[in-house]
Simulated scan of single mutants.
Amino acid sequence: MPKFPAQYSTLSAIALKTYIEDAYGLKLITCKYLLRGVSDTYIIEATDAQYVFKVYREQHRSADEIKGEIELLNLLKENGASVAYPIKDTRGDQLQQFEAAEGIRYGILFSYAEGGPVFELTDDQLKTIGRQMAIVHNITSVIELKHQRKAYTTETTLTQPIKDLKPAFKDLPEEYTYLKETADKVIEKLTSFDTGKFSYGYCQYDFLPKNFHFSEAGTLTFFDFDFAGKGYLANDLMSFFVHFFVHNYTGKLSNEEADRMFAVFISGYRENRDVTEEELKAIPYLGVGFWVFYLGFQHDHFDDWSNLFFGTRFIKDRVALIRSWVNKYCEF
């Protein structure tokens, strides 16, 4: 009987253990499946180190886009940024290819970011994040990758996602109208800024505490550059600001403390790189694009990733959160 086509397979952790041992010349103790998210993640424990193995979906990232992520991380590592980086196999390759049930899937073995995520950040940690993010931007603002990555523009973060989202809002017409009208206002507002003077380059576009680890010694390592693409570097400052907004929205931080902590982070950033006051004023409007972009991503990848939570209630709650962001930070 022929095999029935698959939409999303999960590579066997047992088989991957053998494959990684052979491909990388490592002696592994365990290979454990960690989570199914944007990509599938496995935790690898070798006799002398830990690693992370990520398996990508073709529907999410083409081979050329994945090679762009590898190229970016190699350049960051070579130039002194503190990032988890791709490991070369015994042949010198950093990209693995698997003939999975649904077709070709690609995998990368990454160095392990020592330590763990910290969500209640101290002032010293906030300054460290600022300094290290600035180092990343000092590199990403002057490089040009050979492999194309997504560009973050008002078209890709607002206009197109809202068009794509329309079917999901069939039972929420008022929310859809609000989202569309707000996007139009944001686009108009951004034209009032002198964006030609904004720092531009490759931004990570997801600089949240879940994507960096602090070790016990206080060292910081960034990871998960899966969404990295070209855009205003203020987008990364904005994505980190999202952390403080969410903590404030859920009652974990006061407005004053959220603003104070972000200011500490910015002071650390400015130790290694300048950011203008106008770029900081643009953060609320870039943030609307962030929320809409990821809502669009969750919609577009409903079958493969977000089916557990994406629905009418989630959409309604997310629009309420966006409304709170707009009311708190945006001026039209």
Rank of each mutant, 00 (worst) to 15 (best):
I70L: 02
Y33K: 11
P2I: 14
V292E: 01
L280S: 04
F119N: 03
I104T: 12
D93W: 06
E58W: 02
N235T: 09
D259P: 04
V242D: 13
V264S: 07
R273K: 15
T219K: 10
R260M: 06
G268C: 06
K150T: 13
I104A: 08
E144M: 13
M1I: 14
L295Q: 03
G289L: 00
D164Q: 14
K316N: 10
T153C: 02
L95W: 00
D40P: 03
L26F: 04
F293N: 13
D304K: 11
D124M: 12
F225G: 00
D184S: 14
Y178N: 08
P173Q: 08
P2L: 15
F225Q: 02
S12D: 11
F290P: 02
L190A: 06
M133F: 06
P117N: 13
K166N: 09
K166A: 15
L35E: 13
K88I: 05
F244Q: 09
L16Y: 08
Y176F: 13
P86T: 03
D224C: 01
A49G: 07
F297H: 02
A84M: 06
R149F: 05
F193Q: 10
L280P: 03
A23V: 07
G251F: 09
G37L: 08
E69V: 02
L190K: 04
T191N: 10
D123C: 09
T30R: 10
A113S: 11
Y85I: 07
K170G: 07
A234Q: 00
L95E: 00
H301T: 03
F98P: 05
A183V: 03
L95G: 00
A134H: 04
P284M: 04
L179H: 03
D184Y: 07
Q59I: 03
L72H: 01
F309N: 13
T191P: 03
V186G: 00
G115T: 06
E58L: 01
L11K: 03
R131G: 06
N74Q: 05
L308S: 15
K252D: 15
Q298C: 09
T312C: 08
T18N: 13
A151S: 13
